[in-house]
C-alpha cells in the first residue's frame, strides 16, 4: 500500500514544479520545419493503402456517368496533365527557388550588415514579404507589371508565368533571408573574435569563416521552403498560368464537367504533388539529423 502511495505524491510534486520550468514551446506551430516533418513523417504503407482503396470504392458505384467513366477520362488526360501541367509547376518552383535563394542570401546578409540603413531596409523587406499572403503578392506582381515592354520598337510580351515566378520568389526570398540570418547568428560570437584578433575584416570573416560553418545548417530549412513553394505553385492557376490545376479544369470542361470528374482529377494532382515532395521531405529530415551533431 505504501509503495502505491509514494508515486502519487511524486506526481503531485512534479506537476507543481513544472510551473517553475522555463517555457519551451513544442509542436507544429513553433517548428520552422513543421511541413517537411509532417510530410516526411507520413507512413508510406498507409498512403499506399489510401491510394489503392479510393479508386476501388469509386469503381464500386454504377449507373449513368459513373466513377468508372471519370477514371477512364483521367487516364486519357494523364499525359497532358503531367507534361503540360505538372512539369510547369516544377519549372516554376525551380525558377522561383533560384531567384528567391539568390535574393534571399543578399537580403539575409543585408540584415547582418553593420550599416544601419541597409540593415533596416533588409529587415523591413524581409518582414513584409514573410508576413503577406502569397496570393496577394502574386496579384500585386501580376497587376503592377505591364503585359509587354517595348524596347527600340520591339514589343516583348511578358508571359504570366514569368510574373508568377517573380511573385512566388518574393516570399521565398524573405524566408531564405531569415534562414541566413538565423544560421549566421547560431555561430558563436567567439568565432568572430578569433577572426578579428587575426586581423580578418568583416567581409573576410563572414565569407571565409562564418558562412562556411553554417552552410550545412541552412540546407534542411532551405529544402523545407522548396517543398512549401512547390505546394504553393497551384496558386498560379488563379493568374491563368498553364499548370496542373489550370489544365485539370480545362480537361474536366472538355469532359462536360461531370461532378464525378472532380475527385479523380484533383485526386491525381494531390498524388503527383505527394510523389514529388515526399522524397524531398524524407531527404530533408535525414540531412537535418546528419547535420545536427556536426
Amino acid at each position: 500500500m505504501a509503495i502505491k502511495y509514494i508515486p502519487v505524491t511524486t506526481q503531485y510534486k512534479q506537476d507543481r514544479l513544472a510551473v517553475l520550468k522555463p517555457f519551451s514551446p513544442k509542436g507544429a506551430a513553433y517548428d520552422e520545419m513543421y511541413f517537411v516533418r509532417w510530410l516526411g513523417g507520413l507512413k508510406l504503407k498507409y498512403v499506399a493503402l489510401a491510394a489503392l482503396l479510393w479508386p476501388a470504392i469509386a469503381f464500386a458505384q454504377s449507373g449513368g456517368y459513373g466513377m468508372g467513366d471519370a477514371f477512364e477520362a483521367l487516364l486519357r488526360w494523364i499525359p497532358f496533365l503531367t507534361f503540360q501541367g505538372f512539369l510547369y509547376n516544377v519549372l516554376i518552383s525551380i525558377f522561383a527557388m533560384t531567384i528567391g535563394t539568390v535574393a534571399g542570401m543578399a537580403l539575409g546578409l543585408g540584415q547582418l550588415s553593420n550599416i544601419s540603413a541597409v540593415r533596416r531596409f533588409a529587415y523591413f523587406t524581409t518582414q513584409i514579404f514573410r508576413n503577406s499572403p502569397w496570393l496577394v503578392i502574386l496579384f500585386v506582381i501580376l497587376l503592377a507589371f505591364p503585359f509587354e515592354v517595348t524596347v527600340f520598337d520591339i514589343t516583348i510580351p511578358i508571359p504570366a508565368w514569368m510574373k508568377a515566378v517573380v511573385g512566388l520568389s518574393l516570399p521565398v526570398m524573405a524566408n531564405i533571408s531569415e534562414i541566413v540570418r538565423g544560421a549566421v547568428r547560431s555561430v558563436p560570437s567567439t568565432q568572430w573574435e578569433a577572426a578579428e584578433s587575426l586581423s580578418f575584416n568583416r567581409t573576410q570573416t563572414m565569407w571565409q569563416i562564418i558562412l562556411p560553418q553554417c552552410f550545412k545548417r541552412m540546407i534542411p530549412p532551405w529544402m523545407n521552403w522548396y517543398a512549401i513553394l512547390t505546394m504553393a505553385t497551384p496558386l498560379c492557376s488563379l493568374l491563368g498560368v498553364g499548370e496542373i490545376i489550370t489544365h485539370s479544369r480545362q480537361a474536366m470542361a472538355a469532359e462536360n464537367n461531370y461532378p464525378e470528374l472532380l475527385v479523380p482529377f484533383y485526386g491525381y494532382a494531390l498524388v503527383v504533388f505527394f510523389v514529388y515532395c515526399y522524397p524531398i521531405a524524407r531527404l530533408t529530415i535525414a540531412l537535418e539529423k546528419r547535420f545536427a551533431f556536426k
Binding site: 568565432q191 573574435e193 578569433a194 580578418f200 573576410q204 562556411p212
Partner: peptide, 23 residues
C-alpha cells in the same frame, strides 16, 4: 583564448595558414 576558438571547418594546417594568406 581560453576556449581555443579554432575554425572547426578547417584542418590544422588551414587554420594556421589562413590568416597569412588572406590577411
Amino acid at each position: 583564448f581560453q576556449q581555443y576558438n579554432l575554425f572547426p571547418h578547417k584542418t590544422v594546417l588551414e587554420n594556421v595558414m589562413m590568416a597569412p594568406i588572406k590577411v
